[in-house]
Amino acid sequence: MTPLRAAALLLLALAAGVAAAAATPTDSLYRIEAPLTDQDGRAARLDLHSGRATLVAMFYGSCPHVCPMLVSSMQRMESGLDAPARARLRVLMLSLDPERDTPDRLREVAQRHRADLARWTFARTPDADVRRIAAALGVQYRRLPDGEISHSTIVTLLDAEGRLVASTSQPLRPEPEFLRALHTHTAPERTTPP
């Protein structure tokens, strides 16, 4: 092997190593490469909040009672954090009803809840990705003949790399372990970039 060739191989190996280190963990939700459209009509990807601990939940805009409660319950979880921790947390609300939840409608929902859009994102993604994300999060949902969607309300905490670290199906009264995980993952050392 010529020295030149050996050097090239070494470089290749190094590049591969760097790529592997930077890759999304194999159990991360961000392995689903879903295209999102947010409440301002901007295109984004499912991993738009990567690098920050993120609460993610699925809802739909015309949901009359429980979805508003879901959003408020997540705001309550946030208010349990101190201001710097809250500033480190991101929230992703994904629509189960991409056809009807246009950006305008998503923005309406956000405004109705006075959501802090510097940290919160309301987004839709194509049906096939809704199914994949719901399956990964364990969110059950079914479209009913009257147009409503019966769905389970699950709030999932993702770590900075998108791994599912905790979830609760009782967002109004989350389990102590869930709240502990929320505190741990919004602590300063967790989200400081390496």
Binding site: F59, C63, P64, H65, V66, C67, M69, L70, A134, A135, G138, Q140, Y141, R142, L144, P145, D146, E148, I149, S150, H151, S152, T153, S169, Q170, P171, L172, R173
Partner: peptide, 24 residues
Amino acid sequence: GSLLVGGDSRESGDPDRMKFCGSG
């Protein structure tokens, strides 16, 4: 994963029953 979705809790004020959203 959604075969057994049910339990209409829209009108329920009990937070422990806040599991499903929808009219059916």
